[in-house]
Design a protein around this nucleic acid. Sequence first.
DNA 1: CAACTACATTTGTACATACAAATTTTGTAA
DNA 2: TTACAAAATTTGTATGTACAAATGTAGTTG
Lengths: 151, 151
Amino acid sequence: MKIEEIIKSNSPISIEKRTVLNIMFTQNVIADAFNDILKSFDLSVEQFNVLRILRGQKGKPANMCVIQERMIAKTSNTTRLVDKLLLKDLVIREVCEENRRKMEITITEKGLKLLAELDPKIEAHETLFSTNLSSEELENLNNLLEKYRTI
Amino acid sequence: MKIEEIIKSNSPISIEKRTVLNIMFTQNVIADAFNDILKSFDLSVEQFNVLRILRGQKGKPANMCVIQERMIAKTSNTTRLVDKLLLKDLVIREVCEENRRKMEITITEKGLKLLAELDPKIEAHETLFSTNLSSEELENLNNLLEKYRTI
DNA sequence: CAACTACATTTGTACATACAAATTTTGTAA
DNA sequence: TTACAAAATTTGTATGTACAAATGTAGTTG
């Protein structure tokens, strides 16, 4: 569906504006589908991302800075996201003994299990949209996006 | 900058996952730049979008349904967005006489003036990223996104 | 070591988002 | 005409986001 139909515009839209709208709208479609999956697991997208970052640490704890710099939405409030994960026993939080300003966040067994359960569903979702494009088209799309956002 | 560097991943990422990340991240970059512009005008992105939808009505009022269906993020709370715009005298809200369940929202002169002031800045921003790509590349990007998100 | 500055995180506040429940009005059918 | 269902919007609640200010800790310099 063309972006003009989606926002029900009757006047023509410049290619620059269309590109912005298309990126915004496509992100929305993906995020909505993500949300649908995570909702049944009582996780928000950002909570899920934090868990994935922690799993990527392979046992090593991560402090708040590290989590923050790896998140996609840069200014999510990491403290409160971790608070929520703590309440569900998906992570533990300890003061770092070498530098008491830092916090060490580690994913728990329960957190890992939850991710393991989610993995196939998330992967299926990621694949779902991609099947509309050939591998060359996918590569092309990624290259164009990377080139586009460079300032 | 490649998406792998951005999220500081050391393990390889599938093309499907990379595509999702690239779309999410690019949208974030655009939205942040948008926010920077609107912040100085004390508008949020969604408030701005509502104003633009109202301007598109060319004098005709729009009811809440109409506004909602034209917004990019489908479940923004239109009532509260309009509340905020009312407080700033950028719109007026009246009960529709033919169907008293409906509300008629109209943009004010002040709202139109604000948009007129914003227009060139927003356009410059939309153009900024687009200059990284040729017209064919832009067309290509738009087509790929439209094809990608089709379910 | 006292005073500063920088660092890491938390807290406060205002606003936005998601979704369900409530409210008001309209149309319709017994 | 009362009762009921549907439509349009609002309200409530929990959560998330943006950003500034506050807190607590570490390192540095006079």
